[in-house]
């Protein structure tokens, strides 16, 4: 069964998945930071028309898709920047128009819906050598820009006005992110597919920020998670039982979501623990608080007693049942 990994088409698909998995979250982090999580989804819908245009005209769909996706992304960014009250409605119109246009053009071109489906949900067997090269090149550009310009892109997304006073060309950076998103959507369409690509941009970021407190680690971890989900999901879809065909998009996204579901409780636990362990400010203790009766304890607090021991200035406080206690002579002081 593992023979499948020795087929050249599978190796091509794995390579494409590897690069796509790294690139999509690299852009996705900035998109999530700006609270535009659905931007990738919108671009994906618009790109459907691009693919259909390629199928209709016989031009490689990768090129028509990337062109239409970039145009769509720029248009979306302009609508967003104008801040029209009906901006979200305008975006919705664009999304549906893109999807409907794609289905119409595919029909007119006499192509079967199955052909379009390969681009909507990904496909293992149809990735050509040329596709792999294009994917790798585009992904490399996206990763280099996403990581190399991280300080600038971070500042613009974090506080647009401050970035402007710092002399950054905010509009150019915002357009750059939109274009990078369009490029990521296009390269991801061969593996996860246009309708699920947004998940690969957003879910790894959501997962990694369960465990991180800084932007850099969120970005790095999201890229690793995206890559693992992408390669892992593709392999899973290839291992589907004989006679069935599972689109890799579904397995990639489900694997990615599984990662989120697993990390969620872990993140909640880590945040809680970290909050508990943070030292208390080293203020002099409040002498007016009533001392805690040692009789209320069945043990002496100590490093091994299991209660949270938290540094407090020159001593340690123990936290239990809503109290903060520090040993003092024969009793515990309430701090």
């Amino acid at each position: 069964m593992l023979d499948i990994f020795s087929y050249p088409f599978m190796q091509r698909a794995l390579l494409a998945a590897f690069f796509t998995g790294l690139a999509a979250p690299a852009v996705g982090t900035y998109i999530v930071q700006r609270r535009l999580a659905l931007l990738g989804d919108g671009i994906g819908h618009v790109a459907v028309t691009g693919v259909a245009l390629g199928l209709l005209t016989g031009i490689a769909p990768t090129w028509t898709a990337v062109t239409v996706a970039v145009l769509g992304a720029v248009l979306i960014e302009i609508i967003r920047e104008r801040g029209h009250t009906n901006g979200d409605v305008a975006l919705a119109l664009l999304f549906y128009g893109g999807l409907a246009g794609g289905v119409l053009l595919t029909g007119l071109g006499g192509q079967s819906a199955a052909r379009l489906q390969e681009y909507l949900f990904g496909s293992i067997t149809t990735i050509s050598v040329g596709d792999v090269w294009v994917t790798m090149a585009f992904a490399a550009v996206v990763i280099l820009i996403g990581v190399g310009l991280a300080p600038q892109l971070f500042a613009v997304a974090q506080d647009e006005e401050f970035a402007r006073v710092a002399g950054l060309n905010v509009r150019a950076y915002n357009l750059l992110v939109a274009v990078l998103a369009a490029v990521s959507v296009t390269i991801a369409m061969r593996t996860v597919g246009l309708l699920l690509v947004s998940a690969l941009m957003v879910v790894p970021v959501a997962t990694s920020q369960q465990l991180t407190r800084s932007f850099r680690t969120t970005l790095g971890a999201a890229m690793v998670l995206g890559m693992v989900a992408s390669v892992g999901g593709l392999s899973l879809s290839a291992l589907a039982p004989a006679g069935t065909r599972v689109a890799p998009g579904s397995t990639i996204v489900l694997l990615s979501l599984a990662g989120f579901v697993v990390t969620w409780p872990l993140g909640a636990w880590l945040r809680r623990r970290q909050l508990q362990r943070a030292p208390f400010p080293a203020l002099p203790p409040d002498e007016t608080a009533t001392p805690h009766d040692a009789a209320q304890h069945d043990h002496d607090h100590g490093p091994a007693c299991g209660h949270a021991a938290i540094p407090h200035g020159d001593h340690v406080d123990y936290v239990h049942d809503g109290h903060r206690h520090a040993p003092h002579e024969q009793h515990y002081d309430e701090h």
Binding site: V32, A37, F154, Q158, Q209, R213, F215, T218
Partner: peptide, 15 residues
């Protein structure tokens, strides 16, 4: 939508 550390925000003032 993404966490940022105190150091990172202050560092952006250096841009």
């Amino acid at each position: 939508g993404v966490p940022a550390s105190v150091w990172e925000v202050v560092a952006s003032g250096r841009l």
